[in-house]
């Protein structure tokens, strides 16, 4: 998607509006699990999907912009996790590169690849980047930030695995060609 002049117009728009969607879902789209203060963050499923659709750079920027704006309108910027969101988008896009979902290709093999990509990206972002930055920037206790990172990463893995995959499959089905269908009596 990157041309010699930088991002294509569509990528720019996908970053802008993708980040808007990320912000709206951060605010309204979390599913309470029943455990206090622990929600399934649906916006990471969307971030993984957009990274798959528009590439790693779009993923990086949607994560950075979306998380910054979402933080600014809720409780102020927490920089370590903002960066981790960007890293998640970048890696999810990088490792799911080459899946031709635009052509309706999203079968078993692609589902597996998409999920391996999101698991690596989640692990890197929440098991490593977020806690390490928490320690570097805020000098927070290591056991606390690693526990938080583990919990957040695991939850996001589950969310993306279920919702991300479901929506990606549904999207790929919208790309089916009309010629492949017949009416039934």
């Amino acid at each position: 998607m990157q041309s010699s002049k930088g991002f294509s117009v569509k990528t720019v728009v996908a970053i802008g509006i993708g980040a808007a969607l990320f912000v709206v879902l951060a605010r309204f789209g979390s599913i309470p699990t029943g455990i206090p203060n622990t929600n399934l963050q649906t916006n990471y499923a969307i971030l993984a999907l957009f990274a798959l659709l528009y590439g790693p750079w779009a993923g990086l920027l949607i994560g950075l912009i979306g998380h910054t704006v979402a933080d600014l309108i809720s409780f102020g910027p927490w920089f370590s996790w903002i960066i981790a969101s960007g890293v998640f988008g970048l890696l999810a896009g990088l490792f799911s590169r080459g899946i031709r979902i635009h052509d309706g290709e999203f079968g078993g093999k692609e589902i597996l690849r998409f999920n391996i990509a999101q698991i690596i990206a989640n692990a890197a972002a929440w098991f490593i980047v977020a806690p390490v930055l928490d320690i570097l920037i805020y000098a927070e206790p290591a056991n606390k930030v690693f526990t938080q990172g583990l919990a957040a990463g695991a939850m996001n893995m589950v969310t993306v695995a279920i919702l991300g995959t479901l929506i990606a499959i549904a999207y790929s089905k919208t790309r089916t060609k009309r010629g492949s269908l017949t009416r039934e009596a």
């Binding site: 089905k173 919208t174 790309r175 089916t176 009309r178 269908l181 039934e184």
Partner: peptide, 11 residues
């Protein structure tokens, strides 16, 4: 819509 019952909605 009966003839289309097993179609994807997007089609």
């Amino acid at each position: 819509l009966y003839p289309f019952r097993s179609w994807p909605v997007s089609a």
